[in-house]
């Protein structure tokens, strides 16, 4: 084979690594407005693996599939800047409240509609939930093999792929047939930077909703520059059963959320003076905690 049809699954996530004190509202709920929305880090590792396949087989096509609110179109633009060919934003209120299983169902149905896919590549997990469930669940929904924790694609030849997996206590090299779902580990190479020319071009790539917001007469743009259209699919664009979607389709329910309140322990507060530190070390030695 000379070309592969690749789909990268990517998610826009709040940057939970930089949660400040204002991230929580007084009532204990999350103040999403103050958190930056970023491209999930391991999904960028996944995109890099896709781009490497395209480096070797330039006829290959990379499309990004993301599910989220309208602003998640940023994820597709970011992919375009770095070398993806296109993308689809799956967005609808019907998907709101989805747990990992309902998410996988919606993504799986969108992938079925896209059809003829050779390789689906996703990050191992997203930093807002750390569940690592959507990749394997999408694979199961499509009845495809999954290979998780991939660090390197060693060989892609015809209809088979050889990859190195990073496990907790070791590494494994496996060979398997296409099509399949791969999830990529954070230990895989970082994604290449944005390409300046592509940035200049694709910053104009928009969804119809975005065009409508910004420009009253957008039809000429939509018709004249099809390469700058980011496809937007709603629940009506894919075949779904309502019982599998959103909150209704989610077996897991959040019973309660507790804001973290610390119970103060009886702490000894000491200074960094020599006498205080020496006293502490002596106490620890006397209690046989150290020594």
């Amino acid at each position: 084979m000379k070309a592969y049809n690749i789909i990268v699954l990517a998610k826009q996530v709040p940057d939970t690594r930089n949660v400040g004190k204002d991230a929580m509202k007084a009532d204990g709920t999350i103040n999403r407005a103050v958190l930056a929305a970023i491209f999930n880090p391991e999904d960028l590792n996944a995109l890099e693996q896709a781009l490497r396949i395209k480096d070797e087989f330039p006829e290959s096509k990379i499309n990004i599939l993301t599910m989220g609110p309208g602003r998640a179109a940023d994820i597709i633009r970011e992919g375009l800047y770095r070398g993806a060919d296109g993308g689809i934003l799956l967005t609808d209120r019907a998907f709101a409240g989805s747990d990992t299983l309902a998410t996988s169902y919606a993504i799986g149905q969108a992938l079925k509609k896209m059809g003829n896919i050779d390789i689906i590549i996703a990050g191992r997990q997203a930093i807002d939930g750390d569940t690592a469930q959507v990749g394997p669940q999408v694979a199961e929904k499509l009845n495809l093999l999954q290979i998780t924790y991939v660090e390197e694609i060693i060989e892609l030849k015809d209809k088979s792929i050889t990859v190195k997996r990073r496990l907790e206590n070791g590494v494994e090299t496996v060979k398997c047939p296409l099509p399949l779902v791969i999830t990529v580990n954070g230990s895989a190479p970082d994604c290449r930077a944005r390409n300046a020319k592509r940035l200049m071009k694709y910053k104009h790539a928009k969804t119809v909703t975005e065009l409508q917001k910004e420009n009253e007469d957008y039809t000429h743009l939509y018709n004249d520059r099809p390469d700058l259209n980011i496809q937007e699919w709603t629940v009506n664009d894919i075949e779904t059963e309502a019982s599998q979607l959103g909150l209704t389709g989610s077996p897991t329910k959040v019973k309660s959320i507790e804001n973290v309140v610390l119970q103060a322990k009886d702490s000894k507060v000491i200074s960094s003076s020599d006498s205080d530190i020496e006293e502490m070390m002596v106490e620890l030695l006397q209690s046989h905690t150290i020594g």
């Binding site: 949660v19 991230a23 807002d128 959040v254 019973k255 959320i257 507790e258 973290v260």
Partner: peptide, 9 residues
């Protein structure tokens, strides 16, 4: 969510 909440599922 970054450890700011404890969820019971």
């Amino acid at each position: 969510f970054g450890g700011n909440i404890i969820a019971t599922i």
